[in-house]
């Protein structure tokens, strides 16, 4: 459905994409994961025909976006990072304009009405776009991508800047749309990709670090569980108790919380939940545990793990 072959993109002297290749099959929800500035938006802008590549090939449903852009674009609905809206238009007018722009053949009123129902914007149909909340603007942006019922939907960080309730709504909507469309969903948030996507392409500094199923990603990111515990009591004593626990692999003090309590970074094995024995041991010695939180793996950690896992696989061949 979508194919990127050895695509390079230079901005002057700066090389934004360094020969990336990936595929998305029909029905995939492909996560495009990477930190800000990794090259995600550049790749998506090339895929949708907004930018040209310095070299390489890109196909949408077998049609080259470089050789036959008008035809290839007919199969793509794109929501860029900033929704491409006209604030001075009403929602209905805007969607009508996009319908005309894409040269749709479906029955106009019915098609737009159906899309408004799917993305739940029927109640703001007659309102000016500039008066809508950010969440609604994002939904209108998704609605314009859906016009013409394209086979491929490309969403570039659609949840950025939304409040938690709106984020959940947009994620659910994308999952729902994934039942009928091939979707590329870019994000720099790992749990978001894990929640929505069936496959993931991880990109960093213009290079694809991993191209995995979501299960493989989960496997790769599973490692030692890390906790930050805030404990009252003398540092040496507390460390002695922590290090004596079989469930704990390592424990280190990382800073003072206040005059009588200290923060500790605790690592345990991936399959062991150290929280219960930790609590019991501290309670038995009379050192109060005043705070305990899990530490999520950073994207950098994920990249390191994925690359080392890839290298291990190569060595095994």
């Amino acid at each position: 459905m979508i194919e990127f072959k050895n695509v390079y993109k230079n901005y002057g002297q700066n090389r934004a994409l360094k020969g990336i290749s990936f595929k998305a099959e029909s029905g995939d929800i492909l996560g495009f994961l990477g930190p800000n500035g990794a090259g995600k938006s550049t790749a998506l802008n090339i895929l949708t025909g907004y930018l040209s590549a310095t070299s390489g090939e890109a196909y949408v449903d077998g049609v080259s976006i470089f050789e036959n852009p008008v035809e290839a674009k007919k199969n793509i609905g794109f929501l860029p990072e900033l929704p491409p809206l006209y604030p001075d238009m009403k929602v209905g007018e805007y969607l009508g304009f996009v319908y005309d722009l894409k040269g749709c053949k479906l029955p106009k009123k019915q098609h737009i009405k159906e899309i408004c129902e799917v993305v739940q914007i029927s109640d703001v149909y007659g309102r000016l776009i500039k008066n809508l909340s950010k969440g609604y603007k994002q939904r209108v942006g998704i609605a314009q991508a859906l016009i013409g019922n394209p086979k491929v939907l490309v969403f570039d960080e659609p949840t950025v800047g939304l409040d938690p309730k709106q984020i959940i709504e947009i994620r659910n909507l994308v999952k729902e749309l994934g039942k009928e469309h091939t979707i590329i969903f870019s994000s720099h948030i790992l749990p978001e990709i894990q929640q929505i996507c069936s496959r993931v392409v991880v990109i960093n500094e213009g290079v694809i670090v991993a191209d995995e199923s979501i299960e493989s990603l989960a496997e790769a990111v599973e490692g030692p569980r890390r906790l930050i515990a805030k404990i009252c009591g003398p540092e040496a004593e507390v460390l002695k108790i922590l290090r004596a626990l079989p469930a704990i692999k390592s424990a280190d003090a990382i800073g003072k919380v206040d005059s009588d309590s200290i923060s500790y970074l605790i690592e345990s094995d991936e399959r062991i939940d150290a929280r219960k024995p930790l609590f019991a041991a501290l309670a038995a010695k009379g050192y109060p545990l005043i705070g305990l939180e899990g530490v999520e793996m950073s994207l950098e950690d994920v990249f390191v793990r994925l690359t080392s896992k890839r290298d291990q696989r190569r060595r095994g061949r």
Binding site: N45, T48, Y50, I76, F78, P80, P84, L85, V98
Partner: peptide
């Protein structure tokens, strides 16, 4: 300025 050109440039119009 408003990036709405992305809509025009990614739609099937030359």
């Amino acid at each position: 300025k408003t990036k709405s050109e992305q809509l025009l440039m990614t739609s099937p119009v030359s």
